[in-house]
Computed example of a mutant assay.
Amino acid sequence: MQRLETLRRQAYVIRLAIAQLLVALVGTLLALVVADSGSATSVTLGALVAFLPQVFFVQRMAVFKQRVPASQSALRLFRAEAGKFGLTVALFAVVFITVPPSNPAFFFSAYIAVVLMHWLAPWLMPRKLRN
């Protein structure tokens, strides 16, 4: 039973990451066609600012490992979420200081689109793993 739960978590995380990267790729290509390369760069940066903290969170939560006791799990969750928040703030600061987006609307749209993929992720799960 525990192995099945681990497989469910792994499938969810992998499909979510793929969906987030696809959204970033489609957004970048769309910005390249509609606007210019500067806007495409803004989309890419916005997607990275959203995606990299998510990768950090998954790694800190040890999603791909077996379950741990609830007390350790809660502590991991708080630490991972605090680290994710700190990394997000740091990435925003780095992006706006070193490489200011040429089009902030594209930057924030990509950021929001990648972050909101969590809402669509349950639809990405195969039926046999959802139940």
Rank of each mutant, 00 (worst) to 15 (best):
P69I: 01
W123C: 05
P126W: 04
Q72K: 06
T98N: 06
K84G: 12
T28Y: 06
F92D: 09
N103V: 09
A11F: 00
V94C: 10
A110W: 02
A31L: 04
F78D: 07
L124A: 09
L21Y: 01
L25M: 14
S39Y: 00
A35W: 12
N103G: 00
L22P: 01
S42G: 06
Q72Y: 03
F64M: 12
L48T: 04
P104R: 01
L16A: 13
I112H: 03
W119Q: 10
M1S: 14
R79P: 00
N131P: 09
V49S: 02
L124C: 06
L16D: 08
V94T: 14
R127G: 03
T98E: 08
L4G: 00
T6K: 14
I112V: 15
R130Q: 13
I14N: 04
K84L: 11
V55D: 05
L21C: 09
A121N: 09
I14R: 06
A19S: 14
P104N: 03
F108A: 04
L52R: 01
A74E: 12
G86R: 01
T88F: 13
L4C: 00
L32E: 12
L120R: 04
S73Q: 11
N131Q: 12
Y12H: 15
A31N: 02
A70I: 10
W119G: 15
S42F: 01
L25F: 12
R79F: 03
L29V: 04
L48K: 00
Q59A: 14
V94A: 15
P104M: 02
F64W: 12
A90C: 10
A40G: 09
L21A: 14
A19G: 11
L77W: 11
A17K: 01
W123P: 00
A110M: 07
A90T: 13
L29E: 07
V55F: 11
S109I: 07
E81P: 05
A17G: 11
L124K: 04
S102Y: 00
F106S: 12
A93K: 02
L29F: 08
A50S: 14
V23S: 05
A121M: 07
I97L: 15
V115A: 11
A105Q: 10
Q54I: 03
A110V: 06
Q72D: 14
A50N: 07
G86L: 15
V55N: 02
A105H: 06
L120I: 14
S102R: 07
A93C: 09
V33F: 09
Y12I: 01
L7N: 13
S102V: 06
A70M: 12
R15L: 15
M1R: 09
V115D: 03
R15K: 12
